Each structure stands twice: as structure tokens, then as C-alpha cells.
Amino acid sequence: MAETLFIPQTTDRQAIYDSLVPQLAALVAGETDMVANLANIAAALKEAFGFFWVGFYLNKENQLVLGPFQGPVACTRIAFSKGVCGAAYTRGETIVVPDVEEFPGHIACSSASKSEIVVPVFDQAGQVQMVLDVDSDQLNDFTETDASGLEQIARLITGLY
């Protein structure tokens, strides 16, 4: 696949995910370098939706360590017991936070972040290996459509490793 995305000119997020997921599948097919694939996925999500911050935190050294991302500088390390990323990792489930100020223990990497969604990414054995973290500078910006679309993308990653 060429490194060009077709992004429908619509505000309908479902339509964008429906277009984006197969393009991402084609983009990462055959590429074995995880960092390259995660970087392209983060860039594609940022380009498609204009989210404030999109990136991955990987399980390393018994904590979550910053991986490929798009957006302002971010927290480098997050304990499994801290913040939305740690909660999604520990629970093994997607967490949607309409207002980060109301999430107990939220880690404020940027005061511009207002809402957040974090999706666990599993390995082939069903263990969480990383999380996909997406922040918005708008309150209540994520819905079930985003959860479903981002979970599809997380399954693409699982299939690679």
C-alpha cells in the first residue's frame, strides 16, 4: 500500500473508522517492525481524526513506557496502578473518560487534555502488552463508536505479534 490514506470528508466517525481500518491493515501487512507499525498507526489516527494526542504505552520493566506517538511531549513512564492507562492495562478493558478531571488518579501529562480513551492491546496469548491512548482537548469527545473502532485497530496489532 502507498503511504497515503484516504480519509472520508465527513464528521461521521463510524465512516472514518470503516475506511481507516482496512487501510491500516494493508499498511502494516508484511511489516515486521513493531515500532514502525505503531508509529504509522498513531500518525494515521491523528491525521484521520485530529485528536489532541495519540500514542502507545508498552509494557516494559514492569511499567508502561512511552512508545510511538503523535502530539505534544508526554509522560515517559506510567505505573500499572496509575491513571487511565494503568487502569486499562490492569483491567484489560477499554476505558472511556468523558472528563479527565473526574477520573481518580488521572495523570495530567498535559493540562489541555479534557477527555481520554485507552484501549488495551493483547498479544497472541491474551496478555496485555501495551495500551493505545487517545486524548482530546474537548470534553466528552469519545463514544462507543471510538471504542469499537480503536478496539478493531488494537486487534490488528495483536495479529502482528
Rank of each mutant, 00 (worst) to 15 (best):
V128A: 11
D18G: 12
G67P: 09
L45S: 03
S19C: 14
A88I: 05
A15S: 11
L45C: 11
I7L: 14
F142P: 05
F49I: 04
V131T: 05
A79H: 06
N59Q: 12
R13F: 04
G55V: 00
K114D: 02
A39V: 13
K82E: 15
N59T: 09
E101M: 10
S136V: 02
V128D: 07
I41C: 05
D137I: 07
K46S: 15
I7S: 10
K60I: 03
F103A: 03
Q152P: 07
A87K: 08
A25D: 15
A26N: 10
A26E: 12
F122Q: 08
T145V: 12
W53M: 06
L5S: 07
V21G: 15
N40M: 14
L139P: 00
A43Q: 09
A15I: 13
A39H: 13
D141A: 15
T158Y: 04
Q14T: 13
R91S: 04
S110G: 07
D12M: 11
E102F: 11
I16H: 03
K60V: 05
F52C: 11
I153Q: 11
L156K: 06
G55W: 00
N62D: 08
N140H: 15
A26Y: 02
I107F: 03
M130S: 12
S136F: 04
L160H: 09
K114E: 00
E102L: 13
V131G: 08
D18R: 15
T94A: 09
D137C: 07
S148V: 09
R91Q: 13
A154N: 06
Q14Y: 11
T4F: 11
S19V: 05
D135K: 04
A42F: 08
F56Q: 01
E116D: 02
R77D: 08
T11E: 11
L58F: 08
A29N: 13
I7K: 11
I157N: 05
D12W: 10
S136M: 03
P120E: 14
K82C: 12
V84H: 04
Q124V: 14
R77V: 12
G92D: 12
F122T: 06
G30E: 12
T10I: 07
T76Q: 15
L38K: 03
Q152D: 15
A29I: 09
I95Y: 01
R13C: 05
D123V: 04
G126V: 00
E31L: 13
F51V: 04
T143H: 02
I107W: 01
V100F: 05
K46V: 08
C75W: 05
I107G: 01
L156W: 04
V97Y: 02
V21Y: 12
L27Y: 11
F103H: 05
D141C: 13
A88F: 09
T32H: 13
I78K: 06
F142D: 02
R77L: 14
T4A: 15
L45R: 01
Q152N: 15
